[in-house]
Write a protein that binds this DNA or RNA. Structure first.
Lengths: 251, 251
DNA sequence: CGAAATCTTGAGTATAATCAAAAACGGTGG
DNA sequence: CCACCGTTTTTGATTATACTCAAGATTTCG
């Protein structure tokens, strides 16, 4: 449960293995990586859009997000990152960041030099494939967001986001039964869903009235994942979690 | 100009090099790949959602798209593919397709076995990186679509799509001056933009009235890319084209 | 306790969806 | 070359979803 007490390597291994298993020597190589662990306060920029970062960034604890801002000044959040997520792995092969990366809550973040990762990939093709796969799952999530924002209305759109987040949190042990910490505020939810804060507020109230979710402070409870899934027209295929983790095991 | 007369290898090399240059031996290796070239009619499924494809697919000529359908039956197009695009490279590391892939026009398509690509990547780490980069640019495009659909209104959203497509077409020599074949109909445009056909129609008429674009049959002309760019709040960074190709050279 | 952030509410408006049908277009076969 | 059919584009009228602006309530945190 207490993901914050886990090491970067443990988290990363679990995260990579949630898609496909690793070999013992690959895990050993990951264990030996020289992470630079830092605490970052809430609402801080980790990487700016346009940056040429020399290292990638693993979220150890807390919530972060990738976002971008329209030329007209409107923010869109492209994705949320939680414990175990490599938040800007694309920098390994794309020199320019096309999104910003920012904390939502206070975070523990572990950095790893691109050079180190490249050497690791060269020595362990299986790890290269695993990292590549990680970026492909990321892309699959972006695709699903395109569909969510483009073709679902507010109620389903938010339900879909809750489905994705609770499932991903469950996969890394951040769910306690049907409850989790969900420190994403309505304005951030709006920027993720392509809605306004006001409309998110009204829609959430409707969802609470329908007993779909409950939110006390930042505690999210989902009484019935089945009903939420139905409301969000949610099909977890795109997360590419292997079978036992996509199911309903209790964290 | 006549992209259809080019070989799969030529197209792929140009496409990969539009992001970063390749080594001579890498190009030679690509030249030697055993493609299986096929003609596919318009509106045919190439890969179905849920498939476990054993090969990837390069568009040699024509237009294709990746799409998915909501549980409520609404279609969302996630991206368009044109000559030189590897349309489902993600299948190389993700066993299940989370989107469908379908032709828009009649297409010439070249298939390459995953096994062959994996062997190629093992022998040429630089090519592995190039392919990986290709999937990362794909992901960057999906992110931009999230922003486009989430945070721009219809007029800008369509302008943005026209900007992206004309720039990508220019990069592979499919533009003749300010004109190109644009065989995407209003219903497909609607499914890409997250709008209805009716609304796309009305918005396009507005854009034509404003002299932003003109469409005779499937001929698209963009009199001023600058003005279109402005209307679409378009910043080409996310396409990760290197400088000379992102500019305004005439095809 | 008090200030700042977040959430909630209300009223009015705008963008986009829906439904339905007519016009235009593109290709085909006689 | 023209008539015909299916597809695509266009139009109109109405409705719904979501946005805007503004202010008040509540929570959070120092």
């Amino acid at each position: 449960m207490a993901a914050s007490s886990e090491t970067p390597a443990t988290l990363l291994i679990r995260s990579l293995e949630s898609v496909a298993p690793l070999m013992p020597d690959e895990k050993a190589a990951l264990d030996a990586l020289p992470w630079r662990v830092t605490q970052i306060k809430a609402d801080q920029t980790i990487v700016r859009e346009g940056d040429h970062p020399m290292r990638s960034c693993l979220i150890v604890s807390g919530f972060a997000c990738a976002y971008n801002v329209t030329l007209r000044g409107k923010r869109q959040i492209m994705g949320f990152y939680i414990a175990g997520d490599l938040a800007n792995l694309q920098g390994l092969h794309l020199p320019v960041m096309d999104t910003g990366l920012s904390t939502i809550t206070a975070c523990t973040v572990a950095f790893i030099e691109h050079e180190t990762l490249r050497a690791l990939c060269a020595r362990h093709p299986g790890l290269a494939a695993a990292f590549w796969r990680e970026t492909l799952v990321d892309a699959a999530i972006f695709r699903e967001w395109v569909m969510n924002i483009g073709r679902r209305e507010a109620y389903a759109r938010l339900a879909h986001i809750f489905c994705e987040m609770t499932l991903r949190m469950r996969a890394v042990g951040l769910m306690e039964g049907d409850t989790c910490e969900f420190p994403i505020n309505q304005s951030e939810l709006a920027d993720a869903a392509g809605l306004t804060t006001v409309h998110v507020n009204r829609t959430l109230m409707q969802m609470r009235a329908d007993g779909l979710i409950s939110l006390f402070g930042s505690q999210l409870t989902v009484p019935s994942f089945e009903r939420l899934k139905e409301a969000g027209e949610f099909d977890p295929t795109y997360l590419h979690l292997h079978a036992q983790q996509a199911g309903a095991q209790i964290g």
